[in-house]
Every structure is written in structure tokens, then in C-alpha cells.
């Protein structure tokens, strides 16, 4: 049981990294990765939202949608629920934890309808995970996102000092760098299967 959970966790952080191998959540990955501290803030927020979104959508899928045979409404219901949830959490944080709201505040509305968040909740259902496995998978995906963001922020901070050809400046060289980081993560493929074989 525990071994299975650890395997899910490792798989979602390293092998099936949402940004680098599934290409979900590219927008914040390219947008908010200029400074390491911002990348950490964004990564933590995404992890947090992924967890609460899974905690809310998994019961809805299994006790509501499956029961009324409404699986085809999954996408629209999940978007609705996640958006409400994030808004709600933002209000709670603003009232009761102003310090946390200040550090996460800018990022929370940004990830309301982030495809990585929606992707995690949908994939949890598709992969047939039970509730605990879903939560572990979400945590892993969030941490994987955080890892990718921080690594890439480091790469970009170094890249600021480089002098690429004029036509590569800005986004093009960033995309090239992203593809190289993504290739590096490809090296993890197969590791988890062998570790837990």
C-alpha cells in the first residue's frame, strides 16, 4: 500500500512531470519563472490548489456524476467547482491569514482555471485512483510543478547573463531552454519501474 503510494508520488514528480512531459501549465511555467522566489510562490500555490481541487472533485465525480451517469459533464462541472473553490479559499485567506494571502494572493486567481490543475483532477479519475491515491498523486504533481518551476527559474536567471543572437532573444531562447530541461527529465523514464519492481 505504502509502496504503491510512494511509486505514484515518484512517478508524478519525476517521470510524468506535468510541465515537462505532459506539457500542461506551460503558461505560468514561462510567465512566472523569471525569479526564483516568484517561481516558488507560484509552485506552492499550484500544489495547494491541486490538493483542494482533488479533494473536492473526486467525491463529486464518484458520488454525483457517476451516480447520475453524467460522466460527460465532468469538464464543465470540474471547472465550475475549482473556480468556486479557489475564489472561496482566497476570501478565507484574505480574512483569516492576511500574511499567507499576501504571498499567494497574486497567484491564486491566476491558477483558477489553469490546465495543470484541471488536468490533475481529470487524470485522477481516468487512472482509476482511489481517494488517498488521488491526493498523493495531486501532491506529487504539485511538487513536480514546483520542481520544474524552480529549476527553470534557475536556468533563466543564468540565461539573463547570456548573449544569444538577436532573433533568439526573449521567448525563443526560453523555449529552447525549456525543451532542454524537458529532455533532462526524460532521463527519469524507467527509473521508478525499476526502483519498485
Amino acid at each position: 500500500m505504502l509502496k504503491g503510494l510512494i511509486a505514484i508520488m515518484m512517478t508524478s514528480v519525476l517521470v510524468n512531470n506535468y510541465v515537462l512531459s505532459k506539457f500542461l501549465g506551460i503558461c505560468p511555467f514561462l510567465g512566472v519563472s523569471k525569479k526564483t522566489d516568484q517561481a516558488v510562490g507560484m509552485g506552492v500555490s499550484v500544489t495547494f490548489v491541486m490538493l483542494i481541487a482533488t479533494a473536492a472533485t473526486w467525491p463529486i465525480q464518484h458520488y454525483l456524476l457517476n451516480r447520475f451517469e453524467l460522466e460527460y459533464m465532468q469538464t464543465i462541472v470540474f471547472i465550475l467547482v475549482i473556480a468556486t473553490l479557489v475564489q472561496f479559499v482566497e476570501m478565507v485567506l484574505k480574512k483569516h491569514m492576511p500574511a499567507l494571502h499576501k504571498s499567494l494572493g497574486v497567484y491564486l486567481p491566476l491558477i483558477t482555471t489553469n490546465c495543470a490543475v484541471l488536468g490533475v483532477t481529470v487524470n485522477n479519475i481516468k487512472d482509476g485512483f482511489n481517494f488517498v491515491e488521488s491526493m498523493v498523486n495531486s501532491l506529487g504533481c504539485g511538487l513536480g510543478f514546483l520542481l520544474a518551476m524552480v529549476l527553470f527559474a534557475g536556468v533563466r536567471e543564468k540565461m539573463e547573463k547570456a548573449d544569444p543572437p538577436e532573433s533568439f532573444k526573449g521567448l525563443p531562447i526560453t523555449l529552447v531552454a525549456a525543451s532542454i530541461v524537458s529532455l533532462a527529465f526524460y532521463g527519469f523514464a524507467g527509473i521508478v519501474e525499476n526502483l519498485f519492481a
Binding site: 447520475f68 453524467l70 459533464m73 465550475l80 467547482v81 468556486t84 476570501m91 484574505k94
Partner: peptide, 30 residues
Amino acid sequence: TEVLTAVAVVAAIGAVCAAVLLVASKLMFV
């Protein structure tokens, strides 16, 4: 009936979400 259930369920979820946000915006007003 399938269409009606779908509409009813999604409308119910939407209504619950709206109610939660409405209550929250009153309670958590800063």
C-alpha cells in the same frame, strides 16, 4: 429525462457554488 437530470445536477452544483461564494463574500468581507 437524461437531459433534465443533467441540467438539474449541474444547476444544483452551480447554485451551491454561488451560495457558498455569496455567504463567503458577506462573512469574509474585509
